[in-house]
C-alpha cells in the first residue's frame, strides 16, 4: 500500500476529456480518490483496472448469452431458472447482484426499468444508456410502456401482454428476446449479431436477419 501512496501523482495522465476548469464535482472526485489512495484504502492501479473491466463489459456479453439460449434449449431452461449459474457456464460473473432473465414469448413482452435509480444488468450489458437513467424513462416505463416502446419504433400487438420489471439494488433483470423467424440456419455468432442492447432491455425486439446492422 505504501508504494501506491507515492504514485498517486502519476495516475491522472490517461485520456482526459476534462477541457477547461474542473467542476466542483470533478474536483471532489479527485479529492476523494486521492485521499483514499493516500490512506491506503484502495490503490490507483485498482481504479485503473476497474475502468478497464468496465470498458470490457458490453452488450456483446449479453448477446452471447441470448444466442446460446436460442440455440440450446437446455441452456435456456437453466438460464431462466438460475441466471447467474448459467452465465457462469459461459465464464460471465454477474455478481454481486442477483440476476433474473425474463423470456419474451408470443404472449408476453418484457421490459426492464429501475424506477428509483438506475440498476441495470451491468455485467451483461455494460453501463446503462443515458435514457435508461433519465427521469422520463423511469417515470413513464411503468405508466405507459407501449407509448415508451413506440418512441423506439417498437409496436407490440395489443393481445401481447407487456410486463415491466422494476429492478433493485439486489435484483437485476435481463430480457431474453424472441428468436427472430428465418434464423434457423444461423450459427451462434450470426445469431448474437441480431441481439442488441435495446432488445435485452426490452424496448425493441431482436433484429431481423436481413436488417441492416449497426455495430
Amino acid at each position: 500500500m505504501s508504494e501506491a501512496s507515492h504514485t498517486h501523482d502519476h495516475d491522472h495522465a490517461p485520456p482526459t476529456d476534462e477541457a477547461g476548469p474542473l467542476s466542483y464535482y470533478q474536483r471532489l472526485e479527485l479529492a476523494v480518490r486521492e485521499l483514499l489512495i493516500e490512506k491506503g484504502v484502495l490503490t490507483a492501479d485498482e481504479v485503473r483496472a476497474g475502468i478497464e473491466d468496465m470498458d470490457g463489459r458490453s452488450p456483446e456479453r449479453g448477446a452471447l448469452v441470448v444466442a446460446r439460449a436460442w440455440s440450446d434449449p437446455d441452456f435456456k431452461e437453466r438460464l431462466l431458472a438460475d441466471g447467474p449459474a448459467a452465465c457462469a457456464e459461459l465464464g460471465i460473473d454477474v455478481s454481486p447482484a442477483r440476476l433474473a432473465v425474463v423470456e419474451n414469448t408470443d404472449d408476453v413482452h418484457n421490459v426492464i426499468v429501475c424506477t428509483l435509480c438506475s440498476c441495470y444488468p451491468r455485467p451483461l450489458l455494460g453501463l446503462p444508456p443515458s435514457w435508461y437513467k433519465s427521469s422520463s424513462y423511469r417515470a413513464r416505463a411503468v405508466r405507459e410502456p407501449r407509448a415508451v416502446l413506440g418512441e423506439f419504433g417498437t409496436v407490440i400487438p395489443e393481445d401481447v401482454a407487456i410486463r415491466v420489471h422494476d429492478s433493485t439494488a439486489e435484483l437485476r433483470y435481463m430480457v431474453l428476446p424472441q428468436r427472430p423467424p428465418g434464423t434457423e440456419e444461423l450459427d451462434s455468432d450470426a445469431l448474437a449479431e441480431l441481439v442488441t442492447r435495446d432488445s435485452m432491455i426490452g424496448v425493441t425486439t431482436a433484429l431481423a436477419p436481413t436488417a441492416e446492422r449497426h455495430a
Binding site: D17, E29, R33, M54, S136, R140
Partner: peptide, 25 residues
C-alpha cells in the same frame, strides 16, 4: 415510477473519463 414525463432523449452518451473513475471507485 408511474409519474408522467416528456418524450425520451434517446441520444447516446459517451462517458467522460472522470465519470468512469467515479464509477470504478
Amino acid at each position: 415510477g408511474g409519474l408522467g414525463g416528456d418524450a425520451l432523449d434517446r441520444s447516446e452518451h459517451e462517458h467522460e473519463f472522470w465519470e468512469k473513475r467515479v464509477d470504478a471507485l
